[in-house]
Design a protein around this nucleic acid. Structure first.
Lengths: 142, 142
DNA sequence: CTTGACCTTACAGTATAGGGGAAGGTGTAC
DNA sequence: GTACACCTTCCCCTATACTGTAAGGTCAAG
């Protein structure tokens, strides 16, 4: 199977496939007499793994680590389980950050609805963007 | 006020201040006889605006737009109000995405607790990472 | 023999927000 | 006069996941 066919079957671009190879996510395939990459069916499984991994939030670097286990002949499952835990914790933290940001933004919107645009002083560009209680600490030293 | 003093007062680095100038977020200041940047007190307000703007999720590019209004002598408030709405909507969407991702991750963790690491087939690197109902569509064409 | 589809490598660029360090000028203190 | 802090411009580097483009090789059909 040449790279174009593999791309068509997986929905990746040929660029992406070569990129994955360069990043160590796909083993270097055998080549045809003309120098073309020639893939076996097993590559489909590899790529499926990569796509699902990406979809649940793993970076290519993290997936490469997992693949390295497999390529060394070890089962990566324990490592993957740890990564799942860590990723879930990171995600919880990130979501909390965004929720907090959402509240800051809401406070600014509330404020904006009460302020008169014609009274905006030029000293700080726009009075709608102003540190409230929630954004305190940022810029507060000024 | 030279750049070092401005940096100390705002908590930015001199690098960042020059970078903001290059990006059009700060006007080019007057220079001393020796060629040093010489800032007035008004710059403190500008930088405060930038820091708060960043803290509520605006990019430097978006803040530059707002500043451009002010530098053209227009009040940017209406534009800023629109941006606040848009940013809030974007953020809601992003949070929803992450929550969905969180559920996918949770499904994989639940699955992981039931699977036996010794039965992991090498065909797809690791059986812990597998498309469930929620990640369906990704990699499904394989 | 030529066209066209497909493949190869390699270099550069995208967006974001700066950081690192070189090579050299300025200003003040001793 | 020289040490030292501070300033200048300039170019490259970081991470992420690729895409774009150039210049050229391979292969089957007509």
């Amino acid at each position: 199977m040449l790279i174009g066919e593999l791309a068509a079957k997986t929905g990746l671009t040929t660029k992406a496939i070569r990129f994955y190879e360069a990043q160590g996510l796909l083993q270097r395939p055998r080549r045809t007499a003309g120098g073309y990459r020639d893939y076996g069916e097993d590559t489909l499984g590899r790529i499926s793994f990569i796509r699902v991994g990406q979809a649940v939030g793993f970076t290519l670097g993290e997936l490469r680590e997992v693949i390295a286990f497999r390529d060394r002949g070890q089962a990566p499952c324990c490592h993957v389980a740890d990564m799942l835990e860590q990723k879930a914790a990171d995600l919880d933290e990130r979501i909390a950050e965004l929720m907090s940001l959402r509240e800051s933004l809401q406070a600014l919107r509330d404020r904006a609805s009460k302020l008169d645009p014609t009274t905006c002083p030029s000293t700080t560009v726009c009075h709608l963007i102003w540190p409230d209680a929630r954004t305190a600490g940022v810029g507060s030293e000024i």
